[in-house]
Design a protein around this nucleic acid. Structure first.
Lengths: 334, 334
DNA sequence: ATATAAAATACAAACGTTTGCGCAAAAATA
DNA sequence: TATTTTTGCGCAAACGTTTGTATTTTATAT
């Protein structure tokens, strides 16, 4: 049914090895035969069996990618960037999502490992703080981490400039006159949130402005937990700035503020992180930190390709972020 | 280095075939040996080589999925649904995006075909109106189409109830008093847009209301083309309802209307299609047709699994849609 | 004890490539 | 012409499974 190298060989009365080499443009076969073989292969409708090829070569042309959620704007952008570079280079991409669950992440790694992918690109689930499943992998094949990375694992890491994003946001809010800050975040074992918090705290610290107040609220990253967090304290506690570690939390807080007739930004400034598509479009439009997912994906893929070639690489690349100033923080400056 | 079936066989002084069968829980090997083998495999850290297995079995446990854009909310939801069902069933998913380009689609199909996936789940690029590349495929492996489907190809098709979505929207707008309609759409060779247009036109037709005006604008699906389309006619042409075949177009039109100080919905009602996350959050919030991507994905995956088992299947399943009525069309009824 | 049936395992080929090695013929050099 | 080098290709093994068939072992019946 399906035409193989052997079929071509038979038809041309040469050996499969010659056909194989001819198709691979190997110098050991004459140009004349090479072209003859290619032409015949075409005529016969030959389609290489990459499975067989992978088995023999011991590696495949597939890269595995593990992400927490495929339908998060940021991640799907990263995937887009990775795809772009990898396809260009002749690689395929197998994508698995963990839905933020640790056991799914372990299973995903196992699966990819068993299908002998050429390498793995991963952003960890939020539950993950044990990295043994990857220790084993990183010794056997290239492992590229992005966004949510673990410093202790070998291999390239691509991260957003989380620290700087928060720092600049906070610095500017202080300049605009905000004094009573609340920071909504996830939890510290996730690197990105720790960095965002540190950027926030350092900006407060280094501002050298007296009487700055700071409150940190953990585990407030979703729309509903953002809403609830503010709902709990509104009326009881004074604040004039909400620096959120994520857009969805910021969205929740804005909804809560509006419901309580607190005006944004004149009474309270709100800033998110991530620049989800809705941030620009909602009302008031949300100030937030834009992270270039596609660029991150391209860099991750590039790093992967380098790793496949040179084996060793242990760099950390930082992708710059850009603060989008919009209505939700558009308070007049002093 | 890596432990294989042969290694286990040697250690246990049995043959590879026994080990293979034991691991597969085959009745032809005694329960005692089965357990012994499994235990030893575990101890030795055996990881099955799925590549070898695929080669031998002639098929893999990977399903290929081709989508126009991975970072479109709807598609990433479908992917999520597919993933959920397929992973449960022990299958993997290889995803390729075509970026709406026909040649990319052809290349994607080729790649998946060559990697001997067990089946392909596809939603066509907007450029695609030649389906030869799939004719070949559908005779060799299961092909499931979703959302953007071609009726002439064999295999299951899962579609949204595009017709009904538009029909209900239009019917209701008429009830609310709208009389001068503009329909922004893509082009007719894409089924979904044709269906949406038909739903729109039929609702107009069947309303039996005198003096309904209708204008159709093609190739207006993006934010900017939506904006431009309205910008071109505003002031020159009267209209009180925009029925858009996509949310991004609707967004563009709303932006254009606001810029021209045309009030929504009192002067013009706008309705989109797709229920992108921003639709709910923008201001005015956008009425639109919600399509359940995850459900569609689950159904597509189920159909794929059935196809793999039974070979023949030629059904078309329709996933119901739900109209979300929001501010952009919240005009008082007669 | 022997013949027969059933159970458990062994044997060997196959899946479609790739690749190190070897061999012959052609070309180049002595 | 004899020797070496180059060129072009064939041979055969290997990658790690799976599976149809053959063989041995064990259980059952005669």
């Amino acid at each position: 049914m399906k035409v193989t190298i052997v079929d071509i060989a038979k038809k041309l009365k040469v050996t499969p090895s010659t056909v194989s080499r001819a198709l691979a443009d190997n110098e050991r076969v004459s140009i004349k035969t090479r072209e003859l073989v290619k032409r015949t292969a075409n005529e016969m409708g030959y389609q290489p069996n990459v499975i067989a090829s992978s088995l023999r070569k011991g590696t495949s042309d597939t890269i595995g990618m593990v992400v927490p959620r495929i339908n998060r704007h940021f991640f799907s952008n990263v995937i887009g960037g990775v795809e772009e570079v990898l396809n260009q280079a002749g690689y395929n991409l197998t994508i698995i999502q963990t839905s933020e669950r640790f056991d799914n992440e372990v299973k995903a790694i196992d699966t990819l490992f068993n299908s002998r992918v050429a390498g793995i690109i991963i952003s960890h689930s939020i539950e993950t703080n044990d990295f043994e499943h990857l220790q084993r992998v990183s010794s056997q094949m290239p492992l590229v981490q992005f966004d949510r990375v673990n410093e202790l694992l070998d291999g390239p890491k691509i991260i957003n400039d989380n620290y700087k994003g928060s720092y600049i946001v906070t610095q500017n809010l202080i300049k605009k006159g905000c004094r009573k800050f609340i920071h909504l975040t996830g939890n510290d074992n996730a690197h990105i949130y720790k960095q965002r918090k540190n950027g926030f705290l350092d900006a407060i610290e280094e501002a050298k402005v007296p009487k700055l107040e700071v409150t940190i609220i953990d585990n407030a990253l979703t729309r509903s937990s953002g809403f609830d967090a503010i709902n709990d304290i509104v009326g009881k506690k004074e604040f004039d700035a909400l620096v959120c570690a994520g857009d969805y939390a910021a969205l929740g807080t804005i909804e809560c503020l509006l419901k309580n007739n607190i005006s944004i930004p004149s009474e309270v400034c709100v800033v998110g992180f991530g620049d989800e598509p809705f941030a620009e479009l909602m009302s008031p439009s949300m100030s937030t930190v834009n992270q270039d997912g596609e660029e991150m994906g391209r860099i991750a893929a590039q790093s992967m390709l380098e790793c496949i070639k040179d084996k060793k690489l242990n760099t950390t690349k930082v992708v710059p972020v850009k603060v989008e100033w919009r209505q939700s923080s558009n308070k007049e400056q002093f």
